[in-house]
Nucleic acid binder design. Structure first.
Length: 466
RNA sequence: GGCCCGUUCGUCUAUCGGUUAGGACAUCUGGUUUUCAACCAGGCAAGAGGGGUUCGACUCCCCUACGGGCUGCCA
């Protein structure tokens, strides 16, 4: 009963990594990693029409960006089709499946007729108990011989005990007439072969779990622990769609959210552990459990995402921040930093990371250290540099030439200068900020002066005063 | 149509029969301040509706409403 935990994430490569899929992967990853278990990846690429290698790559990139690593190589479901077919034939041999010679046309006709009558009975193949001697010589599908009475019970770690009446479930096809496996069969076989102990997936699969349980039972395999988590909805409470904007993990990366923040936010979306809100991944792994997962769909809230990301940027090590920022620059198609710029950024990081929630915001506040003279100024900065202000700046530089370059001394000098000019410090800080940063939102003027140094400070003041 | 799941402040959620229903984000007010961000203090704000069970229900059961999922030789 205490098997080592094995979880998996099994995306279809029919598009990029969806934010909901990212969260499903995250939950699986947290659960496994928090228990010293394994987290596996399986690409459900049996739909040859819609699956592409590009999509697979995009999904792997998305997972890597989220910081989710997997054990071993990703498994291709398509490549395991022979094994799936073999299991279907095993079921045939065991008598838990049968050959069905009904054609898709016949089945469609049955459904159409049933619908016309206003009834919605499940299709019951006439071949279920047919004498093999009567089998025609034509292609057949293999159907599972599902129990027709009794019930199938799912003991779900999130949804609780869910009971299905067996007479509601039809004999699903496990192997198509072209010998390709259906999803219902493939998942079970793969999960079993991969040793998956806990299936954590979207609750759109809850109904499927009943039929899949039947396959496990038909093969005499141990049924995994199910955990069906609710889907993520858009801010308006509707199912997430393109119309909501950011549906892909990649888009979050492009918007400049730090991965640790997105991970934290996603972990909290639909899962809670008391009042825990801001936590590291290590803490999340320790706290995460299936019982903390909610049963109602959660809505995306960008305000909260931003808030959490702000905390994480502030918590991150300067070097790690620079590294992730550099990666952000690359994927978002922005110019890379020069050596001088990243050095400057590193020196300024202490006063930048406390005031940014996203990388674009951090970059914006970092312009004073990223730019070199002449400093470009926006309209507000230009307005702050009126004649009087220029005069004050000009009178400041001689004192700066001889000052000890530390915060205390600079504070004294600037405060005295403001007093001498008969203005409050705020009035002095404005033109200073305009001169040093070229914009009115920046770190403290003292921090900026310390970071860029005496020479550069004086040069910028001269430039602004001219 | 049938089956299944869900419903606590605007949002994410805590509560696992007894609480002034707690926290976080957002929002509002005041404070601090050198802009931005932040920070401090405080305010507003919730158990979908109706029946039960119980001394007592957000919590257990039933019904209704609303939302979602499944009902494929898609995954």
């Amino acid at each position: 009963m205490t098997r080592p935990v094995v979880t998996r994430f099994a995306p279809s490569p029919t598009g990029q990594l969806h934010i909901g899929g990212g969260r499903t992967a995250l939950f699986n990853w947290l659960y496994a990693r928090g228990r010293g278990g394994k987290f596996l990846l399986r690409i459900e690429d049996t739909d040859r029409e819609r699956s592409t290698p590009e999509n697979t790559d995009a999904i792997l990139r998305g997972l890597r960006w989220l910081g989710l690593d997997w054990d071993g190589e990703p498994i291709s479901q398509f490549e395991r089709r022979d094994r799936h077919a073999q299991v279907a034939h095993d079921m045939l041999a065991r008598g838990t499946a049968y050959k069905c010679f009904s054609t898709p046309e016949e089945i469609a006709a049955f459904r159409a007729e049933a619908e016309a009558r206003g009834s919605y009975a499940v299709f019951q193949s006439p071949w279920r108990d047919a004498d093999p001697a009567t089998h025609p010589d034509r292609p057949f599908a293999i159907r599972m011989k599902a129990p027709r009475s009794g019930e199938t019970v799912i003991d779900d770690a999130v949804q609780g005990v869910v009971t299905f009446r067996n007479d509601q479930l039809d004999d699903m096809i496990v192997l198509r007439s072209d010998n390709t496996p259906t999803y219902m069969l493939a998942v079970v076989v793969d999960d079993h072969d991969m040793g998956v102990t806990h299936v954590i997936r979207g609750d759109d699969h809850l109904n499927n779990a009943a039929r899949q349980t039947m396959v496990y039972q038909a093969m005499g395999w141990q049924v995994p622990v199910w955990a069906h988590i609710p889907l993520i909805h858009g801010p308006d409470g509707k199912k997430l769609s393109k119309r909501h904007g950011a549906t892909g993990v990649f888009e979050y990366q492009l918007m400049g959210y730090p991965a640790a923040g997105v991970r934290n936010y996603l972990t909290r979306l639909g899962w809670a552990h008391g009042d825990a809100e801001i936590f590291t991944t290590e803490q999340a792994m320790k706290m995460f459990d299936l019982s903390g997962i909610g049963r109602a769909p959660a809505r995306l809230d960008f305000k909260k995402l931003e808030n959490i990301c702000g905390h994480h940027i502030a918590m991150m090590e300067d070097a790690a921040l620079l590294q992730e920022l550099t990666a952000f620059l690359a994927v978002s198609g922005r110019p890379a930093l020069t050596k001088a710029q990243s050095d400057g950024l590193l020196r300024a990081m202490y006063c930048l990371k406390e005031r940014a929630k996203t990388f674009p915001e951090l970059l914006d506040k970092a312009r004073f250290v990223l730019e070199s003279r002449p400093i470009s100024r926006d309209a507000a900065a230009e307005a702050a540099l009126d004649t009087v202000s220029r005069g004050i700046l000009k009178s400041l530089t001689p004192q700066l030439h001889n000052a000890t370059w530390d915060k205390e001394t600079l504070e004294t000098i600037l405060n005295d200068a403001a007093a001498a000019a008969g203005i409050g410090f705020g009035k002095l800080a404005q033109p200073l900020r305009a001169a040093l940063a070229g914009r009115m939102a920046s770190p403290s003027v003292f921090d900026m002066m310390l970071v860029i140094g005496r020479e550069e400070t004086i040069a910028r003041l001269d430039e602004a005063a001219a």
